[in-house]
């Protein structure tokens, strides 16, 4: 089989994968763009969601309840990052780094070992319809549908009065309190929401692939960042719906590009380097075009 055929054959599975990692891209985008809070927690919250969900299902819990609980636990991880920043005035990146590092140990505790398999137990997918994950079309329909629901939910929330209040905290953190909006509350809500999404991705992934692995979070941050940046480059940053769809489109493009690269002989161990260069180029484009603005905060 020539390399290109291999790539084409992989398109459906790569698509389904990108629809999982797109949640992580959203989990980076929400705090970063809407709260001006660059948050690294998702690198820990994503495997946390996976580990918690796996452990809960193995302990006999209904997969739906396990997924929900995993999402809530992910939200708590995000809230802790927010609290570390708000209470102790610790730099946002550092707060995320602390929680992310601590979560590595937590995840190992939850899993009990470096990896566990879920082949013998039910998942949300097998409960809905055992045939769901056997076909590519089924997989795409499930993950595409879930993502559409998530985007619709986020869009709904962010266009309510509460959502506008949340965005005000990121837009002008000194004005927000003068308008009765609590920076404290909304920072916690925003980070909890974002990391709940990252945990959801982890929970869905372990149930889809049938195992959880302590290393599953490794590098999702840079992947998510790449997806976010690609999305912004392709769709721009005008309008809430575009902002929300951007990471999904970005994740899809990112995984296809990577898959193509691998098919053409890119060594898997060079993937992180390639991704970093990719993100660098995408971030540098505005500056190279000579209209600096916009992304300043990310280059700082």
């Amino acid at each position: 089989m020539n390399p290109f055929d291999a790539f084409v054959n992989l398109i459906p599975i790569t698509l389904a994968t990108s629809l999982v990692y797109a949640y992580v891209a959203l989990a980076i985008l929400l705090p970063f763009r809407l709260l001006s809070f660059p948050d690294l927690t998702c690198e820990g919250a994503f495997p946390l969601g996976g580990a918690a969900c796996a452990a809960l299902i193995l302990s006999g819990m209904n997969p739906f309840a396990a997924t929900l609980l995993a999402v809530i636990i992910g939200g708590l991880a995000g809230a802790s990052t927010a609290l570390i920043h708000l209470w102790f005035r610790i730099n946002t990146l550092l707060a995320g780094l602390l929680v992310m590092t601590a979560l590595y140990s937590v995840n190992l505790r939850i899993l009990g070992s470096a990896n566990v398999t879920l082949f013998t137990v039910d998942s949300v997918f097998s409960l809905i319809d055992p045939r769901l994950l056997t076909s590519d079309v089924g997989k795409l329909a499930v993950f595409g549908g879930l993502m559409a629901l998530a985007i619709a939910g986020l869009w709904w929330f962010l266009t309510t009065e509460k959502g506008v209040a949340l965005r005000a905290v990121g837009a002008n953190p000194t004005l927000a309190p003068a308008l009765g909006i609590s920076v404290f509350t909304w920072t916690i809500v925003g980070l909890a929401l974002a990391n709940a999404l990252a945990a959801l991705a982890g929970a869905l992934l372990v149930q889809r692939q049938g195992f959880a692995d302590i290393g599953m979070g490794f590098g999702v941050l840079i992947t998510g960042l790449a997806a976010m940046v690609i999305g912004e480059t392709l769709l721009g940053r005008e309008g809430l719906l575009r902002i929300l769809i951007g990471p999904v489109v970005g994740a899809i493009v990112y995984y296809q590009v990577i898959s193509l690269g691998l098919a053409l002989g890119l060594h898997p161990s060079d993937l992180k380097l390639a991704t970093a260069v990719f993100v660098l180029i995408a971030l540098a484009i505005p500056a190279l075009r000579g209209r600096g603005g916009g992304r300043e905060s990310m280059r700082a």
């Binding site: 266009t159 309510t160 009065e161 509460k162 959502g163 506008v164 209040a165 965005r167 005000a168 837009a171 002008n172 004005l175 927000a176 308008l179 009765g180 909006i181």
Partner: peptide, 25 residues
């Protein structure tokens, strides 16, 4: 709030003396 629209800013002004709800902004 510079990155937000004029109408979103006015909504924020409306929220100064009441709690934001789940209604359309």
């Amino acid at each position: 709030a510079a990155p937000m629209t004029v109408e979103e800013n006015l909504l924020l002004a409306d929220l100064r003396n009441r709690k934001p709800g789940f209604g359309r902004a």
